[in-house]
């Protein structure tokens, strides 16, 4: 049982991070506003969690200009996908026990 707990990824401990990763798993990419609407969290809150996930190389951030405004989109990396899948498997195993 201890094994499974050690397999849980510390990067995904917060609810917001779980939410961000879940959304990215099923969408090719997502922009900041859509992400904010879905997670129902503050700008700063999302930005700090996104930054942490980027540091772990689980997602990439792309900034584009749409007219005069900047639009930020996030995409999951293969590493992020693998890490999240492992985390999901560990969660499932813990509950199956």
């Amino acid at each position: 049982m201890k094994d499974f707990i050690s397999q849980l990824n510390k990067s995904f401990e917060s609810r917001i991070r779980l939410g961000i990763m879940s959304v990215l798993m099923v969408n090719e990419s997502i922009d900041f506003l859509s992400l904010k609407e879905m997670l129902d969290a503050s700008d700063g809150n999302i930005a700090s969690h996104v930054a942490a996930l980027e540091k772990a190389e689980y997602l990439t951030i792309e900034k584009k200009f749409v007219g005069k405004k900047t639009s930020t989109t996030y995409t999951i990396t293969p590493l992020g996908r693998e890490a999240f899948n492992q985390h999901l498997n560990a969660l499932e195993q813990l509950l199956k026990r």
Binding site: G19, S22, L39, L91, L95
Partner: peptide
């Protein structure tokens, strides 16, 4: 703890559904 994991999984599922 177990309840938390279950809640995590429910949340993940609902997020995936809601966003797609």
């Amino acid at each position: 703890k177990e309840k938390d994991y279950l809640q995590d999984l429910t949340e993940i599922r609902s997020m995936m559904e809601k966003s797609s």
